[in-house]
């Protein structure tokens, strides 16, 4: 029962949501709209699980690892402050402390972490993409041409702009289409396997 009922739920839901597309009606629309809404609601109700897991892990780290205690405390402090400032609906309006913390704590850290990748990606690219073969040279050359188009000062010339436009809309598009067809086939096969209960790793272990 523990494993069979979920498999039947997946089978029924999967078939219903495939069929609703092929039979357009008010009922299908109802099923489609409510199905999407319900998945979102259930997903959000699962958020406390993640928060519980985070709090438990951080607390245990603070208790068991004295060296990490200070940083675990910093994490919990940030969590508490943000939760307290976001307790009211008005907190989501521009100018509230909650949104200010989002803008001056969350955004700077996130944007800077991603911008750090500019340094690492450059050094990794130097090691990985040296023009040692034709295909490596093609990759390097294309990347160089595209980067010249995207410098903050704007494209360096009309030729460069036209060339990048062509690269993106023709060979780039061709390869992406090939990849998308492959991804589509793989995803369809996986969906069918899940609906039929052949793929059941999402159930975990007993």
């Amino acid at each position: 029962m523990r494993r069979q009922i979920p498999l039947y739920i997946v089978l029924v839901c999967g078939i219903v949501f495939v069929i609703q597309f092929f039979i357009p009606s008010h009922e299908s629309e109802f099923i489609f709209e409510y199905g999407q809404d319900w998945v979102m609601v259930i997903g959000i109700l699962a958020l406390p699980l993640g928060i519980w897991s985070y709090l438990r892990k951080t607390w245990l780290t603070a208790v068991k690892k004295p060296k990490e205690r200070f940083f675990a405390g910093v994490s919990l402090f940030g969590f508490a402050i943000m939760m307290l400032t976001g307790l009211k609906r008005e907190s989501l309006m521009a100018g509230s402390l909650y949104m200010e913390l989002f803008e001056y704590v969350l955004i700077p850290i996130q944007a800077t972490i991603f911008s750090l990748l500019a340094f690492y990606i450059a050094s990794a690219a130097y090691r990985a993409f040296r023009a040692r073969s034709v295909i490596a040279t093609m990759l390097l050359g294309t990347a160089f041409i595209v980067m010249l188009r995207l410098i903050p000062l704007g494209p360096i010339s009309d030729v460069n702009q036209a060339l990048v436009g062509w690269i993106l809309s023709v060979p780039n598009m061709a390869a992406k289409r090939g990849l998308l067809i492959g991804i589509g086939l793989g995803a369809i096969a996986t969906c069918i396997k899940i609906i039929l209960g052949i793929e059941r790793t999402y159930l975990g272990r007993d």
Partner: peptide, 29 residues
């Protein structure tokens, strides 16, 4: 908790099956 998970998996699988078939496979061809 698997029942809720099964609902999410079944629903998203059913919706995505059609979506992938239309946009990623047939649309690209």
């Amino acid at each position: 908790s698997r029942w809720a998970l099964a609902f999410i998996v079944g629903t998203t699988t059913g919706l995505n099956l059609v979506r992938y078939l239309r946009s990623d496979f047939l649309g690209q061809i």
